[in-house]
Amino acid sequence: MSDQTPSYVEKGGFERDMTYVPDRITRGGARPEHGPVNGELWPVEPGRYRLVAARACPWANRAIIVRELLGLQDVISLGTPGPTHDKRSWTFDLDEGDKDPVLGIHWLREAYDKRFPDYPRGITVPAIVDVPSGELVTNDFPWITHDLFFEWRDHHKPDAPDLWPEDLREEMEEVMQRVFTEVNNGVYRCGFAGDQDSYEAAYDRLFDALDWLEERLADRRYLMGPAITEADVRLFTTLARFDAVYHGHFKCNRNKLAEMPNLWGYARDLFQTPGFGDTIAFDQIKAHYYVVHSDINPTGIIPKGPDETLWHTPHGRERV
Rank of each mutant, 00 (worst) to 15 (best):
203 Y>G: 08
204 D>E: 15
206 L>N: 13
207 F>K: 12
209 A>I: 12
210 L>W: 10
211 D>L: 12
211 D>M: 06
212 W>D: 14
212 W>R: 14
212 W>F: 14
212 W>H: 14
213 L>G: 02
213 L>M: 14
214 E>G: 03
214 E>Q: 14
216 R>E: 13
217 L>F: 09
217 L>V: 10
218 A>M: 13
219 D>T: 12
219 D>P: 06
219 D>Y: 05
220 R>F: 04
220 R>D: 01
220 R>H: 08
220 R>I: 04
221 R>I: 07
221 R>K: 15
222 Y>L: 00
222 Y>M: 02
223 L>I: 08
223 L>P: 05
224 M>H: 01
224 M>D: 00
224 M>K: 01
225 G>Y: 11
225 G>W: 03
225 G>H: 10
226 P>C: 02
227 A>H: 13
227 A>N: 07
228 I>Q: 08
228 I>N: 06
229 T>P: 05
229 T>G: 03
229 T>Q: 03
230 E>D: 13
230 E>Q: 13
231 A>E: 04
232 D>N: 04
233 V>W: 03
233 V>K: 00
233 V>P: 08
234 R>F: 03
235 L>I: 06
235 L>A: 06
235 L>M: 14
236 F>R: 03
236 F>A: 03
236 F>Q: 07
237 T>A: 10
237 T>S: 03
238 T>Y: 01
238 T>E: 04
239 L>Q: 11
239 L>D: 04
239 L>M: 14
241 R>Y: 03
241 R>N: 10
241 R>K: 05
242 F>A: 04
244 A>M: 06
244 A>C: 11
245 V>M: 12
248 G>L: 02
248 G>N: 11
248 G>V: 05
249 H>G: 04
249 H>Y: 08
249 H>S: 04
250 F>Q: 09
250 F>G: 10
251 K>G: 13
251 K>A: 15
252 C>M: 13
252 C>D: 15
252 C>G: 06
253 N>E: 09
253 N>Q: 11
253 N>H: 15
254 R>G: 13
254 R>C: 13
255 N>R: 11
256 K>P: 00
256 K>N: 00
256 K>C: 04
257 L>F: 01
258 A>F: 05
258 A>M: 05
258 A>E: 11
258 A>Y: 04
259 E>R: 03
259 E>T: 02
260 M>H: 02
260 M>W: 02
260 M>E: 03
261 P>A: 08
262 N>Y: 09
262 N>M: 09
263 L>C: 10
265 G>F: 07
266 Y>P: 07
266 Y>K: 08
266 Y>T: 02
267 A>W: 04
267 A>E: 06
267 A>L: 00
268 R>W: 00
269 D>A: 10
269 D>H: 12
270 L>M: 07
270 L>A: 08
271 F>D: 10
271 F>S: 00
272 Q>G: 11
272 Q>S: 12
273 T>W: 08
273 T>V: 09
273 T>C: 10
274 P>M: 15
274 P>C: 07
274 P>Q: 09
276 F>L: 13
276 F>E: 05
276 F>Y: 08
276 F>I: 12
277 G>R: 11
278 D>Q: 11
278 D>S: 15
279 T>K: 14
279 T>G: 07
279 T>R: 12
280 I>W: 05
280 I>M: 05
280 I>N: 01
280 I>D: 03
280 I>K: 00
281 A>G: 12
281 A>D: 15
